[in-house]
Amino acid sequence: TQTQLVTRLWSGYTNSTPQLLRLIDAYLAAVMLSGAIQFVYVLLVGTFPYNSFLSGFIASVGAFILAANLRMQLNGANEFYSLSPEGAFAEFIFCSLVFYGFVVNFLG
């Protein structure tokens, strides 16, 4: 029944998720993959330039988080007070600018 549940989950997801959110989900998956690759690499090689590892890895985590925020804000099912899709996107851009500024500064 577990596989049954998973297929049901998948079908539920494909049926009910709009195009825009699926786009974001694809981006989330890609970012997560990049984070996983970096982490595996660190496990294999070691953490010598620790700040570079941290900034790279946190860049993945942060990109994931910021996109997940956007997804939540765009998702019609969630209630957000007085936030238009354009507003949500502007917030995304603001946070990304701040965040990647710190990432680049920390890269070393």
Binding site: L66, A68, N69, F80, C95, F99, F102
Partner: peptide, 28 residues
């Protein structure tokens, strides 16, 4: 738990943690 909590906390934590590490005294 609301999506608002998720958005507020995650944004704060990710940007806040990365930025706090820029202070040399705090470091890693």
């Amino acid at each position: 738990f609301t999506p608002r909590l998720y958005v507020a906390y995650s944004t704060f934590y990710v940007i806040g943690t990365l930025s706090s590490m820029q202070i040399p005294f705090v470091g890693f």
